[in-house]
């Protein structure tokens, strides 16, 4: 990846990298990045403190990293511990470790296998969660697939297909506590819910599975299952 305009840099012990344009930035020890960085690959195996914004094609955090500003990448993989104080945007975001993003998250493909806390809105075409997550704002995705391994929540959820199921763990999970999803409003075209608490669920075809508590379901097509549904109504005529 060496290039005169994009030099590679590597911190193996303890060190500081100044902001700028790089090829590969590799932090294996403990490193501080001062300023905004634009690089092709950003890899953290140790501990990194990025005191600016980061723009990179691939971002891999296997160790622990904290980002003061926005993070923008094509392929972002957080398998360690990542803390983003700004917003995060990517083409593909995979979180298998522990991640906290204070701002908004936007990526066509989001896979969550670990624990994730998002402060702002979360937008994706495909949102696939098999872990624990919290979205402070709106979770808006074309296809939302959630397998509950723990307590998950979002302020609101909207999309085309929303599918929430209790995970069928193939190992015993004694420390997981309650496994459920909490949201104010869930709105979509096709909705399937299990173990969900929501104030209102609106959609075309709604299926309410086991373990739900829903104050109100509004549907235009069909409603299947009614256990835990306090009130439901079919919405048909705009003038009614």
């Amino acid at each position: 990846m060496s290039d005169t305009n994009r030099p590679d840099t590597r911190i193996a012990g303890a060190g500081t990298v100044s902001g700028g344009t790089y090829g590969e930035v590799m932090i294996a020890g403990a490193g501080t990045v001062r300023g905004d960085v634009d690089c092709l690959a950003f890899k953290v195996g140790g501990v990194a403190d990025v005191q600016g914004t980061l723009t990179a094609q691939t971002i891999t955090v296997g160790g622990s990293a904290s980002f003061m500003g926005d993070v923008k990448g094509t392929d972002v993989v957080f398998s360690g511990n990542a803390d983003v104080h700004g917003a995060l945007s990517a083409e593909s975001l995979k979180i298998s470790g522990v991640a906290r993003i204070d701002g908004a998250v936007s990526a066509p493909r989001i896979d969550i296998r670990g624990t994730t806390k998002i402060g702002g809105d979360c937008e994706a075409e495909t949102f696939d969660a098999q872990g624990v997550f919290s979205v402070g704002g709106l979770l808006n995705a074309g296809v939302v697939t959630i397998k509950l391994y723990g307590g998950c929540d979002a302020h609101d959820i909207g999309g085309e297909t929303i599918d929430v199921r209790l995970a069928q763990p193939w190992v015993f999970l004694p420390f997981m506590g309650d496994r459920n999803l909490t949201a104010d409003a869930i709105e979509g075209d096709t909705i399937y819910l299990e173990s969900t608490r929501a104030k209102v669920v609106r959609g075309a075809n709604v299926t309410i599975g086991e373990g739900c508590t829903i104050d109100l379901v509004e549907y235009t097509g069909t409603l299947t299952g009614s256990a835990g549904v306090v009130a439901s109504r079919k919405v048909t005529n705009p003038t009614a």
Partner: peptide, 10 residues
């Protein structure tokens, strides 16, 4: 539909 509206928003 809701799905369309959310897609347009995205």
């Amino acid at each position: 539909s809701y799905g369309q509206l959310y897609r347009w928003k995205r």
